[in-house]
Amino acid sequence: MKFDVELERVLSKASMKGKTVILTTLNDAWAEPGSVFDLFLESFQIGIETKKLLNNLVIISMDQKAHARCLAIHPHCYALTTEGLDSSTEAPFMSEDYLKMMWRRIEFLNTVLQMGYSFVFTDADIMWLRNPFPRFYPQVDFQIACDRYYGNPEDKNNQPNGGFTYVRSNPRTILFYSKDFNKVCTMHANCCYGLGTKVHDLKIVLEDWKNYTSLPPNERASASPSWRAPQNCRT
């Protein structure tokens, strides 16, 4: 499988021992001087044993303005664009643009894993107060932060948050991050409160599916249904 030469160059330069990188995404809305991005970088500067990790941080810029800002102040930058996505403003949680961005992020992280790189993914609004690497379980494939953690990793009441994950590259995690809509057979509207909301969301699923299946077969491989934001969805 052929991969982007520029991405390979950036990942190789930023990689620490064991082909591991730290990844975050940046868009124009958070890239302004004095905004979230500057605070994010400052946390690495003042955190406990975190300054050295800036050498392993790759900024994935989602638009040209964010990429220009990254290139001006950080050595490891990669431009990733998403067709039809306006990243000049912050996308509200579970909005259509937010979901497009999440799908694109999953696709990109899958590519990184296929290239043989393990990664820590961190949202740019997470402050790095100390080096987390000594606290990771070395043989665990996938580790994720929790909004609420009750002391037992098997407790189903823990509330995971995808804003911070550590993922080791291997066949299991590559499969975990893959999405092949040629294998999707059903879609369950199990997250919705109330019959009216369920009908509303099922109509959206069918509308998106019709748009997806109307594409020529050779275009479906690089596309996916948008699965727009459901109403009153359980989290």
Rank of each mutant, 00 (worst) to 15 (best):
L202N: 08
F176H: 12
L215H: 03
R168V: 14
N182S: 15
A189N: 15
V199S: 13
R168F: 01
G163Y: 01
A189V: 07
Y149R: 06
E219A: 10
T173R: 08
R168S: 11
N211C: 06
S214T: 06
N157K: 09
K198P: 00
T213Q: 11
A189M: 03
I174Q: 11
V205N: 06
D147H: 13
S178N: 13
C185T: 13
C185H: 10
P171T: 03
N211E: 13
N190H: 09
T165P: 05
N161A: 07
L195Y: 02
L195K: 13
G163F: 00
G151K: 05
G196D: 02
I144V: 15
P160F: 01
A189L: 03
L202Y: 02
C185Y: 03
K183D: 03
G151L: 02
N157L: 14
P217S: 05
S169G: 06
K156P: 06
D155N: 15
E154Q: 12
P153Y: 00
N152T: 01
Y212R: 12
Y212H: 09
Q143V: 08
T186E: 14
K156G: 08
P160S: 02
A145W: 13
I174V: 15
F164N: 05
I204S: 10
Y212G: 11
E219R: 14
N218I: 07
N211F: 03
S169N: 04
A145Q: 02
V199G: 07
T165E: 13
K156R: 09
M187N: 04
T186C: 15
N161W: 13
L202G: 05
K183S: 10
D147M: 11
R168T: 09
A145M: 12
Y177E: 05
N152C: 12
F176C: 06
P171F: 00
C192P: 02
Q159H: 06
I174N: 04
T213A: 01
H200Y: 14
V167D: 09
K179M: 12
C185V: 06
F164D: 06
L202E: 14
K198D: 07
K203S: 03
D208H: 08
T197L: 07
C146N: 15
I144Y: 04
K183W: 00
K198T: 07
Y149N: 05
N218Q: 15
I204D: 08
D201R: 12
Q159A: 12
T186R: 14
E207N: 05
N218M: 11
Y150I: 00
S214F: 00
V205D: 04
P216F: 01
D201A: 09
C185S: 08
Y149P: 09
Y166N: 13
P216D: 03
N152V: 09
K203F: 03
Q159D: 15
Y177S: 07
T213P: 03
N182E: 05
Y150H: 14
T213N: 09
Y193W: 04
P217A: 12
P171C: 04
K179W: 01
I174D: 05
E219V: 00
W209H: 10
D147I: 12
L175M: 04
C146F: 06
Q159N: 08
N157D: 08
N170F: 01
D201W: 01
C185Q: 12
D201K: 12
N157E: 11
Y212C: 11
D201C: 15
N182I: 00
P216V: 01
I144R: 11
L215R: 12
A145Y: 13
C191K: 10
E154M: 11
G194E: 00
F181W: 15
